[in-house]
Design a protein around this nucleic acid. Structure first.
Ligand code: FES
Ligand code: FES
Lengths: 156, 156
DNA sequence: TTTAATTAGGACTTTATTATCTTAATTTAA
DNA sequence: TTAAATTAAGATAATAAAGTCCTAATTAAA
């Protein structure tokens, strides 16, 4: 919807690492299993994240990946941009009419430009540290409700 | 972003017809030229819209397409659904975590579910009649500003 | 020093979307 | 009645996204 499947997988992997908060590197296979992401595909995505310094990779036996910097300094939009590439220079009109601008708005512009700004803000607002904490809360709550079998991630 | 390129083309074509408001059928080639849509591709999309009764096609010489019903009874989401298919039964979590629900929200759920609702509302709110009127206004305003060459549509 | 375990990277495959080509069916005008 | 102009429809092609396969490079353990 807002980003590709690749970016979604990247976000999941980054949150997993922030949640696990392990001093040792975590194997790609473990992350892939936790979120049912095709392992080889996630390995490719991890390469991209490493190139963007969002991940650090440790090769060889006992290797894996870990966050490139403190989870409180990593924001979702950074992950999305690393994987999907930078957003277009000029804002796009939601119905593809000529150019998009406040001066010459299309019929949906006033509504859409507000929504677009909210989306941007949502992706720029929260860091991995915060996100991880709340994901853990979600899992605990689901466990209490007896949804254990639906919970794929964070097996410690 | 919110729908496929095909759906975007469909919206543009429908607005064009509402704008033109012609009693006679309008040729697909004319609509395609106005928005620089690949003609054969638009013809395919028109077939889908015809099957969904959003368009009526008249074949043969002097043929073309016209709106299937009054423009005030056609809403954008109907066009999108016709072309892209129905939305998923269950709302999807924006970061793909388990299920999406208010009861077990992911870290972005509270923000995302509000935005998602606004998008839905935007696509369900306005009918073609209203949209067409405002597109015409936009074109007139652009003309006054000397953007004539950017204006592809509505050559009468 | 060899072997096993890991990420890196290139080539390939699959699937979905977007677009084009060709011919058929239909309808009006000449 | 024929020819021209139009949409309908099926087949194919091009492109992009998603996913797989295989081998190389690296590292630690045996
Ligand atoms: S002009 Fe259409 S969204 Fe801005
Ligand atoms: S649970 Fe993630 S968007 Fe609703």
């Amino acid at each position: 919807m807002l980003y590709t499947k690749s970016a979604e997988y990247a976000i999941q992997a980054m949150i997993y690492l922030a949640e696990k908060n392990s001093p040792k590197p975590v194997m790609i296979s473990e992350i892939a299993a936790a979120y049912e992401i095709p392992q080889q595909f996630l390995a490719k995505i991890a390469q991209i994240l490493v190139r963007h310094r969002l991940l650090i990779a440790i090769r060889g036996r006992n290797g894996g990946v870990k966050l490139g910097r403190s989870p409180k300094d990593i924001y979702i939009h950074q992950v999305v941009e690393a994987v999907d590439g930078p957003p277009p220079e000029q804002e796009q009109c939601i119905i593809g009419l000529d150019y998009c601008s406040d001066e010459q708005p299309c019929p949906l512009h006033n509504k859409w430009s507000v929504i677009r700004e909210q989306i941007k803000e949502m992706l720029e607002a929260e860091n991995l540290e915060h996100l991880a904490k709340r994901v853990i809360e979600k899992r605990l709550a689901m466990r209490e409700l007896g949804f254990d079998d639906l919970i794929g991630a964070v097996k410690k």
